[in-house]
C-alpha cells in the first residue's frame, strides 16, 4: 500500500492493536461480560428471553456491545487525542488528504468490529454454542448498518469533543447506559415499563433488535433495521461534514 491513504490505514491498524483502551474495551470487556452474564440465567428457554436459550440471547446481543465500544469509546478518544496533540495538523501538513484520515478511521472501526466480533463468537462457541441464524441477510445487514452508524457516531464525537479526557468521559457516559439497557443488561421484558420505554429510544437498542431478532427467529426486526439504516445515513453524512477537519 503506497498511496497516502494506504500508508495511513496500515499504520492506524497497527496502532489499534497497540492501544490498551482498544484491547480492553473492544476485545476483552465484551467477551468477559458475555461469559459472565450469558451463564447467569442458565440455558433453558424462558419467557422473559422471548422463549429462547438465555445464553444464546446474550451471544446474539453481544456483537452490539463490540459495536458500541468501538463507536462510543475507542474512536472518540483516539480522534480527540489526535486533534488535541496536533497529530492531525501534522498529517495535513505532510500532504495527507483531509478525507483520508476520516476514511481510515471508518475502515479501522469496521475492522475492529469484525475482529472483536469474531473473537467473541470464537469464545462463545465452545462455552454456550452459537445460536442458529434464522435470517442471515437481515442479520448481516443489521451488523453492517449498525457498525457504520456507530463508527460514524464515533468519528463525529471525536471531531466535536475538545480533548481526549472529554471524549473518554462522554464516551463512557454514553456507553454504559447503552450497554446495560440496550444490549448486555437484563432483557427488555424484565425491565419496568418506564425503563423499557427509555431503552427503546436508545440507538443501540435498535441495533441490537435489528441483529438479535432475525438471528434468533424472535421477529423480523424490520422497524429496527429501518431505524438503524436512517441512523447510519444521518451519522455518516454528519461525520463526513465534520471530518473535513
Amino acid at each position: 500500500m503506497t498511496t497516502s491513504f494506504g500508508r495511513l490505514l496500515k499504520v492506524e491498524l497497527k496502532l489499534m492493536l497497540r492501544d490498551p483502551l482498544v484491547l480492553t474495551f473492544v476485545f476483552v470487556f465484551p467477551v468477559l461480560t458475555m461469559l459472565i452474564i450469558g451463564g447467569s440465567f442458565g440455558t433453558k428457554p424462558q419467557p422473559s428471553f422471548a422463549n429462547v436459550n438465555p445464553a444464546h440471547w446474550y451471544v446474539a446481543s453481544y456483537l452490539t456491545v463490540v459495536i458500541a465500544a468501538t463507536g462510543l469509546v475507542m474512536l472518540p478518544v483516539h480522534l480527540a487525542s489526535y486533534r488535541e496533540r496536533g497529530v492531525l495538523r501534522r498529517f495535513a501538513a505532510a500532504g495527507f488528504p483531509r478525507w483520508s484520515f476520516a476514511l481510515a478511521q471508518l475502515v479501522v472501526g469496521l475492522v475492529a468490529v469484525a475482529t472483536a466480533s469474531t473473537v467473541e463468537l470464537g469464545v462463545a462457541a465452545p462455552v454456550y454454542g452459537i445460536p442458529a441464524l434464522h435470517e442471515l441477510w437481515r442479520v448481516a445487514l443489521g451488523i453492517g448498518l449498525g457498525a457504520v452508524a456507530f463508527v460514524s457516531i464515533g468519528v463525529l464525537l471525536g471531531t466535536l469533543l475538545p480533548s481526549a479526557r472529554a471524549a473518554q468521559a462522554v464516551g463512557l457516559l454514553l456507553f454504559f447506559p447503552s450497554f446495560l439497557l440496550g444490549a448486555g443488561g437484563p432483557p427488555p421484558d424484565a425491565l419496568p415499563h418506564a425503563m423499557r420505554s427509555i431503552a427503546n429510544l436508545l440507538p443501540l437498542s435498535q441495533v441490537t433488535a435489528a441483529i438479535r431478532d432475525p438471528w434468533l427467529g424472535t421477529g423480523p426486526g424490520s422497524a429496527s433495521l429501518i431505524a438503524v439504516a436512517i441512523l447510519a445515513a444521518a451519522s455518516t453524512v454528519l461525520a463526513a461534514r465534520r471530518a473535513r477537519l
Binding site: 499504520v11 497497540r18 496533540r85 495538523r89 501534522r90 501538513a93 500532504g95
Partner: peptide, 18 residues
C-alpha cells in the same frame, strides 16, 4: 503543493505508539 513542502510544525506530535 504539500508534497513539495517539508514541514516541521510547532506544537504538534505523533501517535504515542508509532
Amino acid at each position: 503543493l504539500r508534497p513539495l513542502i517539508g514541514s516541521q510544525l510547532q506544537d504538534s506530535a505523533l501517535p504515542d505508539r508509532l
